[in-house]
Amino acid sequence: MTPDALEDFLSLSVDLTAFERTDLLGTGLARQYLAKVRDACGEDVVTALLEAHRAARTEAAEDGARPDPQRLDRALRHRIFSEERLGPVARNVIKLWYAGTWYGLPPEWTDSYGAQPAAETSTVTAASYQEGLLWRAIAANPPGAKAPGYGAWARPPAIEDRYLKGRSHDRTG
């Protein structure tokens, strides 16, 4: 695994998950997740996904400036989410970060692009359930792990401002 691929995967994942790079690295699982996507979809698909993401960012940035959020949103939809081969993989990468589980790709996908040995639904490591971003997003602890302390449940969840309704995430960073 080249360091560049990890950087590209992190950049892609920041745009896909709306979590910051430090949050993603803070799970301690970025490398394992990239390896999992490779094992489940094959090297070619991962390379194409990372290239499509780079192209979307370039398209959304005028004259080398930071990408414009609206343009980036549109470019990601055009180049990745609505693309038959890359769309389901990108949606799975989101689920991977949020739930810590790799979900098997739809049969239509494997029929068209081939099944890899590790394509089945599976958890990545024992830690990935605990580190799922969904728990941070809803400001709850993963049940059975990361104990929040007695009585913590009596308080409203402290959801970070940027994830509250009505706020849009600036994904130009």
């Binding site: 430090t22 690295l25 803070g26 799970t27 990361k146 929040p148 302390g149 308080r155």
Partner: peptide, 18 residues
């Protein structure tokens, strides 16, 4: 008590970053 658990999560996130 729960404040300390939140600090714990914060320390873990920082330490896993190169």
């Amino acid at each position: 008590i729960w404040y300390m658990f939140r600090l714990r999560d914060g320390i873990n996130r920082i330490i896993r970053n190169p």
